[in-house]
Amino acid sequence: MKLNKLSNLLLAASMTFAVTGVAQAQSRDTIQIAGSSTVLPFSSIVAEEFGNNFAQFRTPVVGSGGSSGGLRQFCQGVGANTIDVANSSRKIRPNEVEACKANGVQEIIEVKIGYDGIVFASRTDAAVFKLEPVHVFLAQAAQVPQNGKMVANPYSRWNQIDKSLPDQEILLAIPGSNHGTREVYEEKVVVPGCETLTEVNAMDKDAGKKFCTAMRTDGRVVEIAGDYTETLARLTAQKDAIGVFGLSFYEANRDRIKVATVSGVEPNLDTIISGEYPVSRPLYIYIKGAHIGVIPGLQEYAMFHVSEGMSGFGSVLESAGLIPLSDDERAAISENIRLKKSL
């Protein structure tokens, strides 16, 4: 009967699927990348251009998941079902390198691709902010010193922290701890701001650090686990909110948000390159050395990433918002990749 033939056909088809599936899994010819959502736009552009420029290689696939998520995937081991490149908006931590080595990922090639600024931005119709690191600390801290004692954070408006700040409710949208941006935000803004307080300097180092990064939990500081669009949505909903963004995201949405100066410096390409603007960080990609020569095009991809046309001055990535490395530094990194110099 007709029905029987049909079901035989379906069975045969699904078997073929299963068999080819196993055969395909042995090798992979597409570079697989995952990690930081700050690096993702840049890496995606490089991946696409790579696929378009090298007829012999396939276009790499770029996933997100945050710097920590990407590095965790990266360190799962060696083989076709693990990723080849981890994007990270912070340097790999020593414990992550150990985790990698424990899982057999011995060769980790670190590639610095450029810099990115972190900006504080609010809606264009909100007040103008001239922030100092200490303001941000006082706005987000769990406890603040007052009259020599530590009290629960009493501030609810910015002008209570400093008369020069606008009379606006304190609402901070900061990146969640899965983002590399968070670490830089704490390292470059919160902790330096906190350490300007004499009470904190009196504490011992560990207690001080713990005190500085303790966050208030009354809902005035919101951790955003998703990407910057989610932070932007928060700003759209709440006029008073101030969000933490990457400079490139701000550049693409200048009609919707405006930036605050930090320590009197406005964030832009020039102030970040010169180091005047304090809140910037290097961006990295980590290449799995053991996959070079196994996954076609991996080394070429890394070289292409730091080539002048891609990430030099006047390059594609610069117009996408990446702050380029100096030519000498780029050349040195390119040489590292060629020699497969591992961490």
């Binding site: 959502s37 396939r58 276009t59 696939v61 770029v62 669009t229």
Partner: peptide, 29 residues
């Protein structure tokens, strides 16, 4: 949910899916 800049030629090649593409575009800067 990865960014895939090529059209898959077989079910074994990396690809996105329509609802995921909506999610990805929703997050574009």
């Amino acid at each position: 949910k990865s960014f895939v800049a090529s059209i898959p030629a077989s079910p074994f090649e990396q690809a996105s899916a329509l609802p995921v593409q909506i999610y990805l575009w929703q997050g574009n800067e």
